[in-house]
């Protein structure tokens, strides 16, 4: 039932052209996903999804819309090829599910490998009743360290892309992007930038 709601909302997200509406539907989508996670016994994941999906990412999307535009334009090309591609890929994936274990079976291979060990020994070896935390921090510490490094890098990347320049001696506002590109050492991008400015000035002259 909840899954059906999810499908309906994602269809609405695809159809709607007002991006504010799309972002709001995205928040509802995340909350629905969180409730599905609770039903599927993943309380930690549900917690994260409710906090991240419905909270932070909605706010970030709204921030982006405030900085750009909130109307989506109708694309010029026909969506025939993407439709064919998605249908073929989807059909192949559905064919792949024929071999999948049935939903909720305890004998499925993913539930037989290391999971019973974690459930039996996790509490004994780490003294932490929440097995998810034990696996996250102890058994898969390397994994989590890597994930944290990814978050760190993404945060630094955002700061570099959007952060305000602290050095007031650098040239401000308009030529900022071009100067940054040439400082990056890529000749081609700065060339296209010049081309673009030429073409736009030509356009205004015409």
């Amino acid at each position: 039932m909840l899954l059906a709601f999810l499908a309906i909302i994602s269809l609405a997200i695809m159809r709607l052209r007002n991006l504010f509406g799309v972002v709001m539907l995205g928040g509802i989508y995340s909350l629905l996903m969180a409730s599905i996670f609770v039903i599927l016994d993943a309380v930690d994941v549900a917690f994260t999804e409710a906090a991240v999906g419905a909270g932070i990412s909605t706010i970030l999307m709204l921030g982006t819309l405030a900085l750009t535009t909130s109307r989506e334009k109708i694309p010029m090309h026909t969506p025939l090829l993407p439709l064919v591609v998605t249908f073929v890929t989807g059909a192949m994936l559905v064919y792949g599910t024929w071999d999948m274990p049935a939903f909720g079976s305890a004998e499925a291979p993913p539930n037989q490998h290391v999971a019973p060990y974690y459930l039996e020994q996790g509490m004994v070896e780490t003294g932490v009743p929440n097995i998810v935390t034990a696996v996250l921090a102890s058994y898969r510490g390397y994994d989590t360290l890597g994930e944290l490094a990814v978050i760190f890098t993404a945060g630094i990347g955002v700061l570099l892309l959007l952060g305000r320049r602290r050095d007031p001696a650098r040239v401000p506002a308009k030529s900022e992007f071009a100067s940054k590109n040439s400082a990056g050492g890529t000749e081609t991008t700065s060339a296209t930038e010049e081309n673009k400015s030429c073409s736009s000035s030509g356009g205004t002259a015409a």
């Binding site: 016994d41 930690d44 993404a154």
Partner: peptide
């Protein structure tokens, strides 16, 4: 108990996902 391993993987993936979305 349900299998805790996918929970761990997805828990980190959600937060990484929002960080990369921000990027």
């Amino acid at each position: 108990y349900s299998n805790p391993l996918p929970h761990v993987l997805i828990l980190t993936a959600i937060v990484v996902g929002v960080a990369t979305t921000a990027l």
